Simulated assay, not measured.
Amino acid sequence: MTAAIEVKGLGVHFRRNRRGRRNFKDLFAGASRRSRPGQFWALRDVSFTVQPGESIGIVGRNGQGKSTLLRLVAGVLLPDDGSVTVNGGVAPLIELTGGFVGDLTVRENVNLMAGLHGMARDEIGRRYDGMIVFAELEEFQETPYKHLSNGMKVRLAFSVVSQLDEPILLVDEVLAVGDKGFRDKCYQRIDELLAEGRTLFFVSHNERDLRRFCTRGLYLDKGALVLDAGINEVLDRYNADSAAR
């Protein structure tokens, strides 16, 4: 069986400027593989393989490389060391904006995002109403995206991304923004996607959600992969380390 995702010796380092911000060139171009003064490794020597249909929970404190890993899998960030091989399309839900265009309306953004992911125009037309209803934006279809609230943006992003036919779904903390009613709908939709055999990468600090959706966990600390095991074992180790700190 061909792996859905294969990561070998992955390393990414960033350079901070005087204000502590990440340098743009370091985000999108591998400069030197040797760390220099003022640089830090967001990920270093990380290796693992994910089989189709696996549900992976990524665990760790803030700033330990979880979101960076998802961006590498999504292809929006290039590694300085190692490689990331992804076999199949990716549906990324890794930040609020999610690639939507502020001046375009909700309707135009749905057509744009679905089209960019390869959905045919007639298929978008068949699924459009369902996306809008799921996002609860029936009255805002002609509203520019930039005028939506954060909650509305999350609903729209999840609705569109979860309707894509890509085999790999990336979810990074965004569900924490929605209200309980919408989160319940999202959880049901994730259950449906997993039942279809999709591969899930799930970043969350919600232990209950991780145990519900994921069977395997990756524990990252200071950019290193500390433990790759069943999700319960990973969460127990993470909780023990957190208590020790």
Rank of each mutant, 00 (worst) to 15 (best):
A229Q: 15
E192L: 07
G151T: 00
K66Q: 12
M152R: 02
R15F: 02
L116D: 06
R18N: 10
D221C: 03
V154Y: 09
G197N: 13
M131I: 15
E233D: 15
G98A: 15
G130S: 14
K153A: 04
S242I: 05
V7W: 06
S47F: 02
A243Y: 02
R36S: 12
F202T: 04
S32A: 14
L175R: 10
V203N: 11
F182N: 09
R237W: 10
N206H: 06
S55C: 09
F14L: 05
L43F: 06
E95A: 04
V171C: 03
V12Q: 11
P37C: 00
V46H: 08
G178S: 14
L104A: 03
V160G: 12
D209S: 11
V50F: 10
L169M: 03
E108R: 03
A176H: 04
G53V: 09
Y187G: 06
V106M: 08
E136V: 06
G30K: 13
R237L: 15
E233V: 14
F201T: 07
S159K: 12
V84Y: 08
D45Y: 04
L148Y: 00
F202A: 04
S204H: 03
G217R: 10
D122W: 10
Y128I: 05
S149Q: 01
V59F: 04
R44M: 00
D179H: 10
N23Q: 12
R36N: 09
E139G: 03
M131S: 07
N232Y: 10
P92N: 02
E192R: 14
K153G: 04
V12R: 13
A135G: 12
C186H: 07
G197D: 12
R121S: 08
R71N: 12
A176P: 02
L137D: 13
L27F: 04
N109Q: 11
G53E: 11
L10A: 06
Q51R: 15
P167Y: 00
N206A: 06
N239C: 08
L137F: 13
R183K: 10
G98S: 15
R189Q: 13
D80P: 01
R212M: 00
D26G: 14
V133G: 09
F213E: 03
R107Q: 13
D191Y: 00
S67R: 11
Q39V: 00
T215F: 01
T199V: 05
G217S: 08
V161H: 03
L193F: 01
R183Y: 00
K222C: 05
G217W: 07
I132E: 10
G75L: 03
L116T: 09
F202Q: 06
V106K: 08
A176I: 02
